[in-house]
Design a protein around this nucleic acid. Structure first.
Lengths: 342, 342
DNA sequence: TTGAAAGCGCTACCAT
DNA sequence: ATGGTAGCGCTTTCAA
């Protein structure tokens, strides 16, 4: 590489115009003649000019990047491939617009909050994505307080105070329950997600509601935590029950797989003795036998939509202050882990 | 939030000193009296001053972030949780040093290269991590050509021209083969990684070498691509073989699981008819039945070590120009997918 | 020890 | 349409 980087000064000099004209020409602003514009662009090309993000950043007060904090334990991260797709979606949406993703990891919620504060304080990013929201999530106050543009990823609740991408899991969970009911199941349990999460609650409500619609009694609500081991524990819990359910809807695929493996270890046939379904549609569900009945979510699309909305928000805070994008619900994927009641 | 952000000018004014003194005081540089230093720090605290990364960035010519480009198809990303841990390790190493991770995705190698070029051209990052290197990887020339600090993640080869973190899989593969030999296997095949990758080749060589050491004939070398479906295809290939191996070492866990599931579908008993092992030690291997015999790699540690080295390199290019860090090999994890030869 | 001032590379305002 | 020029917030050199 040759010594100094080529700057806009070099380009302007070469084109024989003022720096300001060069800037306007390169950024497609008006106020330059066609001839000048072409001369500048020509000079830039010849010199291999690439605008410095730093200079631009300082002068425009923009970082040209957005932030996302994974607030999960590293252990879960290792097991759950969900984020790969989500991040892929984000990238896909922002890179064409010249933005980059700054990814941070905070294992606890407190740590995650700290990272958001940091990102905001030093203005490393122009906005952040908020996912896996808790009920009364403190991050909402946080971003409002520090004036950091933020987009939430939430179920379709009406009262969310920030712009958000809404993908409901209620419809999917209902579809799962209906599927089970059609197979003749009458006692359908639910392995929940960790308490406090908006989407944990949403799935619980949807499961309850669907049972009600079908005229069935509410089944057992078994605590869970979205992990493989949580699913295994749920199986043991079921084993200890006086009246076992014939089917169970898990809050996500990972715990469903844990439940299924443990059930098989306990000597049960799946779906013969117990029908199992999950939620998410991760690849793992197609690897195990029987294959998992689940709902195919689209983390990639969610990531892309949320990132897109965030950039819009950054560009025009007023117009997008309360915009929300509704994404279609996931589709039912019938695997071999659910079958007719014995 | 109050209108304007507080800058170093505000701090200096409040402390009643010059901006340059404030800067020195805050950054622990010498040339300020203890009294001044304290007064400045006090003022900064009172004002809630956080240095602007942008200003610092422009003046120091540093981005305070490093880049990593995932060059994988989104499909694989969704299935392979490897990167979660890797990224966690990176984050863990850099965030205490005030750095952030800029993550990009390039599905093809060409696209990935483009992203590296971009990162370098606009100086969005101070350095990059290079993993999954190919033989004669073009990115090596690229970073050298554009003068972008880079750290490679490679097997322990001597000739690597960049600073690197070396974690060999050879020892692990040998351990797998020895394990199989002890179980009485004499015909041990290998499902390879995609051709052209350094670590694909390393594993092929290690498998061959270990067979030779054991005085056995080289087994079948079955092409693969690190994916689940590649593993399934390998099972079909084995099914078509005149003389089937009694055991197979796969280049990674994901393909081993694919192979195993397909083998079971074909009616084979695992490990009765075929012993199978993988490499990586991903959680998936403990979910399936039988559980996968594999080698536990440590992507988190690799990520952390590589990031650490990269920051050292950025801080002192000369001293670290050819430094390499050797990481211990992974450990053999014996699951139930391998057993005595029938 | 302290302070003034010159950049870093860019944008945008204001004369011309 | 064009060209100066004043920032953006910081670091760093050089005088005082």
């Amino acid at each position: 590489m040759n010594g100094r980087r080529v700057t806009i000064v070099d380009v302007a000099a070469r084109a024989g115009v003022a720096i300001s004209s060069a800037s306007s020409a390169l950024n497609g602003r008006s106020g330059v003649s066609q001839a000048t514009r072409e001369r500048v662009q020509e000079a830039a090309r010849e010199l291999g000019y690439v605008p410095s993000l730093r200079g631009r950043s300082l002068s425009t007060q923009r970082a040209f990047s957005i932030g996302f904090v994974l607030h999960r334990s590293l252990e879960v991260l290792e097991a759950d491939p969900f984020f790969g797709a989500f991040i892929g979606g984000i990238e896909q949406a922002i890179s064409p617009r010249g933005y980059a993703l700054v990814l941070q990891v905070g294992s606890t919620l407190e740590e995650a909050e700290g990272r958001y504060r940091e990102l905001a304080a030093n203005r490393r990013v122009d906005g952040v994505l908020l996912n896996e929201l808790r009920i009364d999530d403190s991050r909402i106050d946080l971003v409002q307080e520090i004036g950091l543009p933020a987009v939430g990823i939430v179920p379709p609740i009406d009262s969310f105070p920030l712009p958000c991408v809404r993908q409901g899991s209620a419809a999917g969970v209902r579809a799962l329950v209906r599927h089970l009911v059609e197979l003749g199941h009458r006692n359908i349990a639910h392995v929940a997600g960790p308490p406090g999460f908006v989407h944990s609650q949403e799935r619980i409500d949807a499961w309850r509601g669907a049972l009600e619609e079908a005229g069935l009694a509410t089944g057992a609500l078994i605590p869970g935590d979205f992990t493989y081991d949580g699913g295994r524990a749920a199986a043991d819990e079921i084993a200890a029950m006086a009246e076992r359910p014939s089917a169970v809807v898990c809050a996500n695929d990972l715990s469903a797989v844990g439940l299924m493996i443990r059930a098989q270890e306990l000597g049960w046939s799946v779906p013969g003795d117990l029908s199992i379904c999950g939620y998410d549609g991760i690849a793992l569900g197609t690897y195990v036998r029987p294959t998992l009945t689940t709902v195919q979510a689209s983390p990639r699309r969610v990531g892309a939509a949320a990132a897109e909305l965030l950039l819009d928000l950054i560009d025009d805070p007023e117009a997008n202050a309360l915009r929300h994008v509704d994404l279609p619900a996931g589709e039912l994927v019938v695997g071999t882990s659910t079958g007719p009641v014995a």
